[in-house]
Amino acid sequence: MTEASLPEISAASSPPGGRGTRRARAALPLLLGLPVALWQVAFFVLPLAFLVVVTFWKVRNFRLAPAFDLANWEKVLTSTPFQRALVYTAEVALVATVLSMLLAFPAAHAIALRLSARARGRWIAFLIIPVFSSYILKVYAWQVVLSPGGLVNTGLALLGLPAADLLGGTLSLNIGLLTLTLPVVTLILTFALMGMDHSLIEAARNLGASKVQVLTQVTLPAIKPGLGLAGVTAFLLSFGDYASPVFLTGSNPPTLAILIVDTVKSGSQWPRASVIGVSMLAILALAFVLVQALTQKRKTR
């Protein structure tokens, strides 16, 4: 093997050593690596680490004071509002995850396996846009559509139909969360289905599998990692979301994200907000590991 054919193998064997000193060789990667490493440590890793540390601190006279105190954890974890919010948030996130997977899969299946390459490209471009365009505005738009004096109800009134109570329930909450999750989940599933070996589908039919059997025995198992990623993403987005529960259900009942924002914005109980945040991260990490374990390729017994 020439060194050129394996460019990623090692620093020592890739670029020429200039005049050959080790320092000259190390200069470029250091120059490139240090800023980004420092940046991510300073503004991502350390803040999160600090968040963990703060969970053990105390509040004295409305000021944070370093300490090692498990009282915050005890207080939060045993408090009824937290437990209620935790169960509710997990429930909401699970429902939104299942809904978005169920709604996205048929679409992704059609986009990846039925549409022409051109139409597929357009769909992918269309689905990417909402992922990177203002979510808060879209939540507001749903408020406009669903509120008592909003578009649906004024439309119903025009037709002489009675008004519907749409805002402030499971329906409006899920509409908001689906706005967040559906485009991403559809994209992930579309890419997963595009990436699978399509001859497996033909092979399965050739071996006697009906359409339903092809789906359950071949297509779904073949994209298991993609299903896992899509599920985790949907769960993560809806579990941590703030805007939909606030503006589409009026914070009633509150989710964990709402508890955090309220606690932080009210100013005094930083350690407790941190406990909630760290607990949320722990739950997300757990969910991630669990899904990983479930969707990993089967190992030989």
Partner: peptide, 28 residues
């Protein structure tokens, strides 16, 4: 291009932030 000690944690520190809920990130 390179293989070095600490590459994996560094790449994780670059890749992971969008996976942390913005509420928690904002608070931290």
């Amino acid at each position: 291009r390179y293989m070095f000690f600490g590459k994996r944690p560094l790449m994780l520190a670059v890749a992971v932030p969008p996976a942390v809920p913005v509420t928690i990130l904002g608070m931290a």
